[in-house]
């Protein structure tokens, strides 16, 4: 079904959350969190997925590994069509698809010790004997740079260390694909760099493939091989890192890039921003035509307001959805 090269392939994926109202809980509409998204991820690469809050990037990540059931569309992992699999078959694949969440405190059970937390996935999937499992946990803790942590509880650790625990847990089942859902957003700058370096090292050692979700284009540049920008449930631009940062095409990408503060006071003072007007519209009622036209500085005419732009390759694997490019 899917071609050999792509590791994860997403085809016309949609995820709508229904909105209910009244006593009868009738559906009155839907939040179109992910709306007709197609792309693929190659084995061993890191795809950065960036967007403002409410753009649907976390929903997309979770839908790919089937934490949410898609409304429609296809997700392929290697040669498997994830949606067609039986529960039991999928359970086996689940080992290979893991996720690291944004908030390390909320995603670790405060009443379990660190050892128990990392051991749990091994116990659930019955991987190895008790002794092997324990050795594996020790190995993982060393790998992520935690020492003598087995019998401690999450509250004894700082945010950065908790994120290391969450990473160790995600890696316990030896996954091939890890969705990193804003793993560094809640950490301090110096700790962010530590976690990013750790993720990169682990990728080199274990041959992992990442979907790295972030709202920070600076860190994304560092860790990603390719970058995708999401806006209101759609991907508007996707390109290799170098291409993306040197020749951004979509006006939204340009706006995002120009909003990033840089540690350079002289430039910062005289810099002209590509001003992004207003805020992201409500995803339950997205604008017609190009979803970005309400904030776009170059939108004009009927075409932007009424016709949805096509998702097309403009050369050298640089994909963009804009009428004006």
């Amino acid at each position: 079904m899917s071609d050999e090269k792509s590791f994860i392939k997403i085809d016309k994926l949609k995820k709508y959350f229904p909105i209910y109202s009244g006593i009868l809980k009738r559906t009155i509409g839907a939040v179109k969190a992910v709306d007709d998204v197609s792309f693929s991820i190659k084995s061993g690469e890191t795809l950065g997925l960036v967007g403002e809050s409410g753009s649907g990037k976390s929903t997309l990540g979770r839908t790919i590994i089937q934490l949410y059931e898609p409304t429609s569309g296809k997700v392929y992992y290697k040669s498997y069509d994830l949606l067609m699999l039986k529960q039991r078959e999928f359970q086996k694949l689940r080992l290979n698809l893991q996720i690291i969440f944004q908030d390390p405190f909320a995603s670790l059970d405060p009443r379990m010790t660190v050892g128990e937390i990392i051991l749990e996935p091994l116990a659930i999937h019955k991987l190895g004997t008790k002794k092997e499992q324990r050795e594996k946990v020790e190995f993982l803790m060393n790998k992520v740079g935690l020492t003598k942590a087995y019998k401690k509880y999450p509250h004894e650790f700082s945010g950065g260390q908790c994120q290391r625990i969450a990473i160790a847990r995600a890696l316990a089942t030896e996954p091939e694909f890890v969705v990193c859902d804003e793993p560094i957003s809640s950490l301090d700058v110096s700790i962010q760099a530590q976690v990013v370096n750790l993720l990169e090292e682990l990728q080199d050692d274990l041959g992992l493939t990442y979907l790295f979700i972030a709202h920070d284009l600076r860190m994304t540049r560092h860790i990603s091989d390719r970058v995708a920008i999401m806006y209101l449930g759609k991907i508007v631009e996707l390109a290799s890192k170098d291409e993306f940062y040197s020749h951004p095409l979509h006006p939204y990408t340009k706006g995002l890039l120009s909003s990033i503060p840089t540690p350079d006071p002289i430039n910062e003072r005289k810099r002209q921003r590509v001003y992004l007007k207003g805020e992201i519209p409500n995803p339950s009622n997205p604008p017609k035509g190009c979803r970005y036209h309400t904030r776009c500085p170059i939108a004009d005419g009927k075409i932007c307001r009424e016709v949805e732009p096509q998702w097309r390759d403009v050369g050298s694997d640089h994909w963009v959805a804009c009428h004006k490019v």
């Binding site: 700082s158 530590q194 284009l217 560092h222 540690p263």
Partner: peptide, 24 residues
């Protein structure tokens, strides 16, 4: 100095590894 170095930027060249401040 270390804080400034651990900041990634969107322009210029990037080194393979980010400078970190070890420890907490």
């Amino acid at each position: 100095k270390a804080l400034l170095k651990s900041l990634p930027c969107v322009e210029g060249r990037i080194d393979k590894k980010l400078e970190t401040i070890s420890g907490y």
